[in-house]
Simulated scan of single mutants.
Amino acid sequence: MKKGVSFLVTVALVALVSSLASASDPSPLQDTCVAIDEPKDAVFVNGKFCKDPKLTVAEDFFFSGLDKPGNTSNAVASNVTTVNVEKIKGLNTLGISMVRIDYEPYGQNPPHTHPRATEILTVLEGTLYVGFVTSNTENRLISKVLNKGDVFVFPIGLIHFQFNVGKTKAVAIAGLSSQNPGVITIANAVFGSDPPINPDVLTRAFQLDKKVVSYLQSRV
């Protein structure tokens, strides 16, 4: 192998390893980077500008209210209370956030993904049927019924769900490996996009009658 080609291969391998190593939020280069609103038209990193570390206070790292149940009066009978960088500015650059999830009996956190985070969930009350589906090479369902104190992990980017199979309310708390993990609820994204996806696309993709597709689009 010629020296020039060998060098390019080495560079490519280093770039690949580096990209894999930085698949989650980048590591911070300072003790704190409390997020502040960016100046108009400015360029920023990590989605936020940083407050002068000498001006940080305890409130920058504090949130109150996760003990309170969320409003589950909705179509899926569940509620996710998110504590991310928008709620705790001190999370900026720290690569972590959390949520509380409340479920009515037979309520669910419907199939969704977090494009930027792995999730680790702990059941505080109730019984949940949870699972995730592997990528398209297998589309294998990995699922389990969880009880109080049980822990389950949902790998980054994979479609996953939780369903309260008990007759009482359930509560879970979860940590996520991003300050802003994002969420894509599959049904909402596909049938509730703005503007709507052409029904012909969804009719063929889901093998549904066009009237069913139009109905679902009107419901989301």
Rank of each mutant, 00 (worst) to 15 (best):
V99G: 04
V99D: 03
R100C: 09
R100K: 12
I101K: 04
Y103N: 07
Y103W: 05
Y103F: 14
Y106K: 14
Y106T: 15
P111Y: 06
P115K: 08
A117D: 09
A117Y: 06
T118Q: 10
L121P: 09
T127V: 15
T127L: 12
Y129H: 15
V130D: 02
G131M: 00
G131Y: 01
V133Y: 06
T134E: 14
E138W: 07
V145P: 07
L146Y: 02
N147C: 11
K148W: 09
D150Q: 01
D150F: 02
D150R: 02
F152H: 09
V153H: 07
V153D: 10
P155Q: 14
Q162S: 10
F163G: 05
N164S: 13
N164R: 10
K167D: 15
V171C: 10
V171G: 09
A172M: 05
A172W: 00
I173Q: 07
I173K: 05
A174H: 08
A174Y: 07
P181Q: 03
V183E: 14
V183S: 15
T185I: 11
T185S: 13
A187H: 04
V190R: 02
F191S: 02
D194E: 15
D194F: 15
I197F: 15
N198H: 10
P199A: 06
P199L: 04
D200P: 04
V201F: 09
V201M: 10
L202R: 00
T203G: 01
Q207H: 11
Q207K: 15
D209C: 00
K211G: 05
Y215C: 01
Q217G: 12
Q217P: 08
